Simulated assay, not measured.
Amino acid sequence: MSDKFEYNLIDSETKGDIFNNPVIKNYFNNEGFTENNALMRYVSETRKGSIVYDVGTGNKSLMIIAGVHGDELAPQIAVIKFMEEILNGEWNLRCKLYIVPFLIPKATMQNTRFLDYKDMNRQATNSGITKYIIDYALSHNVVGLCDCHSTDPNKKPGYNSVFCSIRPLVESSMIARYICKNTNSRLLPVYMAGSTIMGSVEDESNLRGIPSVTCESVSPVCKIDPSGVAESYNQLISFLNYFKVI
């Protein structure tokens, strides 16, 4: 397997320089990410907008997303950590993997939950980046999607958790149960996708035929808690382990 990522720009309206967010910039410097020239070349592409990176080959196509909410920084860092490990040859992927560490670079740059005053995790049925990413997943035959978020300890849910639905795709709950069994996360199921939250990436993906979960790790908004990064990383690794591709 080649460790080189291919990448596609799917929305230029979301462009932003994530390094104008000082929290991100400092963390990249402190963790040594900036010393990995290949990684930095890929990350710099987000100045153009929303980028989907893909790597690996296999019978299955999977997708990992972070940054639907720009101020939830821990999962975005966790995905970057995983990308760096792929570049360093630490993983043998047995799938085609689509990775989106910064779905909305503009929101990450501004350290905000919103894109132009809209919560994009309520907009996946409308025209916009969250709909575009599901469209992209469907057009590339993705069979499992993990949407990585974080939760402020003082807000709901406030603990490490995995959201899922039982209908219309029972595999959503199977994936979530597996992740919870293998991480420090609690299961948060609903019976029918879209019955409590409309327009989220997870719900709309399930409704459109892609088994999907939302993983939440505990980390204060606008900040990066290393324990939140670690739990988000463990959640995405468990997601991949469920499909037996690493």
Rank of each mutant, 00 (worst) to 15 (best):
M1V: 06
M1T: 04
M1C: 05
D3R: 01
K4H: 11
E6P: 07
E6I: 08
L9C: 14
I10H: 14
S12D: 15
E13R: 03
K15A: 08
I18K: 02
N20C: 11
N21T: 09
P22D: 12
P22N: 11
P22Q: 13
K25I: 09
N26W: 12
N26Q: 14
N26I: 15
Y27Q: 08
F28L: 12
E31G: 05
G32S: 15
N37Y: 10
L39N: 10
R41M: 14
K48C: 14
I51R: 10
Y53E: 02
Y53P: 01
V55E: 01
G56F: 15
T57I: 08
T57D: 14
G58W: 09
N59A: 14
N59S: 12
K60C: 04
S61Y: 00
L62N: 09
M63V: 02
V68W: 05
V68F: 06
G70P: 03
D71L: 01
P75Y: 00
I77A: 05
F82R: 00
E85R: 00
E85L: 06
I86D: 07
L87P: 09
N88S: 03
G89S: 09
W91Y: 11
N92Q: 13
R94V: 02
C95V: 12
L97I: 11
Y98S: 10
Y98V: 11
V100E: 14
I104L: 09
A107P: 12
N111I: 15
T112W: 14
L115C: 12
L115Q: 02
D116A: 15
D116F: 15
D119V: 02
M120Q: 05
N121G: 01
Q123E: 00
Q123T: 00
Q123P: 04
T125W: 03
T125V: 06
T125N: 00
N126A: 04
G128P: 06
I129S: 00
I134H: 01
Y136D: 03
Y136M: 08
A137C: 08
L138G: 10
L138R: 09
S139D: 14
H140W: 15
V142G: 08
V142T: 10
V143I: 12
L145V: 12
D147Q: 02
C148M: 07
C148F: 02
T151G: 06
Y159T: 01
S161V: 04
R167C: 12
P168I: 13
P168Y: 15
L169W: 07
V170A: 11
E171A: 07
S172C: 03
S172P: 03
S173Y: 05
I179Q: 03
I179W: 04
T183R: 14
S185T: 09
S185M: 04
S185D: 02
L187W: 09
L187S: 07
L188T: 07
V190D: 06
G194W: 00
I197Y: 01
M198Q: 10
M198H: 06
G199P: 04
D203Y: 08
S205K: 00
S212K: 10
E216M: 06
S217K: 01
S217I: 02
V218S: 01
V218E: 01
P220T: 01
P226S: 13
P226D: 09
S227L: 03
G228A: 05
G228H: 04
A230C: 03
S232P: 07
Y233N: 05
Y233H: 04
L236S: 13
N241T: 00
Y242A: 06
Y242K: 08
Y242R: 02
F243Q: 05
F243C: 13
